[in-house]
Design a protein around this nucleic acid. Structure first.
Lengths: 138, 138
DNA sequence: TTTATAGATGCAATGGAAGTGCATTTAGTG
DNA sequence: CACTAAATGCACTTCCATTGCATCTATAAA
């Protein structure tokens, strides 16, 4: 629990009870979660508080948003050396059509893409959809 | 106008007045448009009709959806040899942070991505955000 | 210890977009 | 002309993101 507190404090985020619980939850999940996921997990919790908790986390580099194309935003804890603030590097995301889970494939980087003359890239988002290892049957 | 009708009929879509107008609009736009965009263009048109028109177009390979990460679905007319039904054509999409427009870069294919053992790709979506040629200033 | 105050939380409400059910109209077919 | 299937219009519902404001709480200053 102490480690969680330190994580928050090192990012100048006050370690309230709720924030610690949310962070713990996010860390133990290996997949990206939506606001609704968290809301369901903490049974009678305030959606707004969770929403703002995630927002605070995001603003302070604790989590990053993932748009996996399902329409709802997912969140995942930033890696040690996650440079998502740089709007670059950006590993890719995999969404499973079967189990409806989204994972960060942090080891898998997005290859460099050539753009037409005049286009300036600031951010890249690559989502692959298909079957994850659990659901593909091999 | 005759050409538009033929496009629809070759796809077994009945060429109603509204559908022809929507198709014409989509064709003249060089960027991907949202349902709301179309609704605004055809001032007092029925959102539902437009919604179902786009759905029909999509089901018949006339347009394809684009998820550019803004949260709202965009639509673009399929190219001559667009094989978006195959879930594998895989050109990339560019979203301009400045002018808020999304374009299909049909010439630019998504490179092959290696996935971890057990993962099965069915669909790939790559969106690059940044500044388009109009907004980058060069 | 009390007080001031900034920050965190809870509640209510808004707004945008997708999607559906059903009644009505329209357009092809016999 | 009449029948039928498709297309359209209207009224909802649902889901999620987001905000305003009131209230509570914890930390720092007096």
């Amino acid at each position: 629990m102490d480690k969680l507190e330190k994580t928050l404090e090192s990012r100048t985020v006050r370690p309230t009870a709720m924030r610690l619980l949310v962070l713990k939850f996010l860390l133990q999940k290996k997949v990206a979660v939506s606001l609704t996921n968290i809301e369901e997990y903490f049974d009678n919790s305030e959606r707004t508080t969770l929403y703002r908790t995630l927002k605070t986390f995001e603003e302070n580099g604790i989590v990053h948003q993932i748009d996996d194309g399902t329409g709802t935003i997912k969140y995942a804890v930033c890696e040690e050396n996650c440079n998502c603030e740089l709007e670059q590097d950006l590993h890719l995301h995999f969404y499973c059509n079967n189990c409806d889970e989204t994972v960060c494939l942090t080891e898998y980087k997005i290859p460099h893409i050539n753009l037409p003359e005049g286009y300036l890239a600031e951010n890249v988002n690559l989502v692959i959809k298909g079957l994850c290892e659990k659901c593909s049957g091999h």
